[in-house]
Amino acid sequence: MANKTSQPTIRLEILRYDPEKDSAPRYQSYEVPFQEEWVVLDAINHIKDQIDGTLTHRWSCRMGVCGSCGMMVNGVAKLGCSAFLRDYYPNPIRVEPLAHFPIIRDLVVQLDGFMAKLQSVQPWIIRKEEKPVEQGEYLQSPAQHARYKDFSMCINCLLCYAACPVTELEPHFLGPAAIALAQRYNLDSRDEGREIRQETVSSHIGIWQCTLVGECSVVCPKHVDPAGAIQQAKLASTMDWYKELLWPWGGKR
């Protein structure tokens, strides 16, 4: 039988911020049981349920698809449900809210800015003419499907914003996920809205802000490669510019 002393534990140092009391965040340490199969989210839920009900975080699916539990784990942006304690044990783990976002409380950050950016790139199918439902689905070959598929895998977990120093230095920058989504629709054979999206995507808050640190793609848990999306959008914009320069009467794009 395991007794209290033989149960191994691991320490979590969590950045706490209570907007009603604190003028600045502070770290608080918690000792939690170390379980081989636990992720950081399990440890946080254990604290919330058993030790300190005031600890505040977001979570839901615990299977890496809802995108709620993004956080900094030892300084790296991760999903709390995909960061296993065993990869850090026996060292303590430092948990902070996602970098570059304002902190509402403890691990909860403010997403209003991202939501506005998402909407501003018009991430929906834009067509000159809608196809009536009676005429069935659009034909899209597997090759056409493959063109945009990876960019459609974004779960909006915002790890990429926490990894991108530009989002901190230039708060208006649309950021990796929003641009990747714009590119996802631009590359979809059913869409005709690229020109409309370009007004935002290639504006002063868009792709040209990106200095290609490339960390967005490194931390992305769904292999979306937003850095790739941005560079491809830059290349396409540059081609547009040359086309207009060399063939000014050719009509826009």
Partner: peptide, 22 residues
Amino acid sequence: PGEMIRMDHWGCPWSREPDGHV
């Protein structure tokens, strides 16, 4: 079927047959 076709028109990335149908 109409609802699912609408989803296609809204951009849902349905997996495809080689001929382009869902």
